[in-house]
């Protein structure tokens, strides 16, 4: 192909036959929201304002109980109900994850190893949400991809009266959802389920079984030794 001596020429832009990439097309900011004069927007509020705020445990228990009641009407069976609770916990977990890391400020770190993220969950996350650490963190010996976090007295079991038809319901599914959200969000995809494992001292003891996706183990194996 022959070129002009000066290969450049300005030209008017062709009309965008290839229109703006679809994914970017809807990103324009707009608002119809009214803001109260006395209350500024959520962006003006400091994220640490309610950091140490407390409410009564029974307020949570009542809310949680009603959440279960409502969800129960829309499901068929205990497993479905636990899935719904897991979803609620998931939404909560996603938010706590970012909030906690933001609160750590400049020293905030992302976990890159399985043990790291599990310790974050059983220590920092648990303490921030439930004002106590998880009771144990263990690896399941038989299965490479499984770990367990236990809670002797999960707050979701306090005062909650489980509907009779759902006697096998484990309200810990809510906490399992929180844990699952933190793992998924931090790039350690996993499935987390709650299991009642009472012992003499703790009738409400619950174990959260964490089963990691294969890619997490593959990545972990690559990182060993580094």
């Amino acid at each position: 192909m022959n070129r002009d001596p000066s290969p450049f020429r300005t030209a008017s832009v062709a009309s965008t036959a290839t229109s703006p990439t679809p994914k970017y097309a809807n990103l324009t900011a707009s608002t119809n929201l009214r803001y109260s004069l006395t209350r500024k927007s959520i962006y003006d509020r400091h994220l640490n304002r309610t950091k140490t705020s407390e409410l009564s445990k029974s307020a949570f228990a009542f809310l949680f109980g009603e959440m279960v009641q409502y969800a129960q009407k829309k499901v068929y069976g205990v497993q479905d109900l636990e899935k719904k609770l897991n979803l609620h916990g998931y939404a909560v977990g996603q938010r706590f994850l970012e909030l906690l890391l933001w609160r750590e400020g400049r020293t905030a770190k992302r976990e890159t190893r399985i043990l790291g993220i599990l310790q974050f969950i059983s220590h920092q996350l648990y303490r921030a949400i439930f004002q106590k650490q998880a009771d144990t963190l263990e690896k399941v010996r038989e299965n490479e991809d499984e770990y367990m976090i236990s809670d002797n007295d999960p707050v979701v079991n306090t005062y909650i009266s489980v509907p009779k038809e759902m006697s096998q319901l484990n309200c810990g599914a809510f906490i399992a959802g929180i844990i699952e959200a933190v793992l998924d969000g931090h790039c350690f995809p996993a499935k987390v389920t709650a299991h009642t494992a009472p012992n003499e001292m703790w009738p409400g003891r619950t174990v959260f079984l964490i089963k990691f996706e294969p890619e997490v183990l593959e990545r972990e194996a690559l990182r060993v030794g580094s």
Binding site: N26, L27, T28, A29, S30, T31, S41, I42, Y43, R45, L47, A91, Q94, R95, E98, L99, W102, R106, G185
Partner: peptide
Amino acid sequence: FTDVYDLYCKTLMNPFYEVNMAIRSQTFD
């Protein structure tokens, strides 16, 4: 980026905002 993270967290704490949703708030912008 630190300021952006603060703004992102505030966006996310809103129960009506879900992860991976586009952020269209004018105030955020």
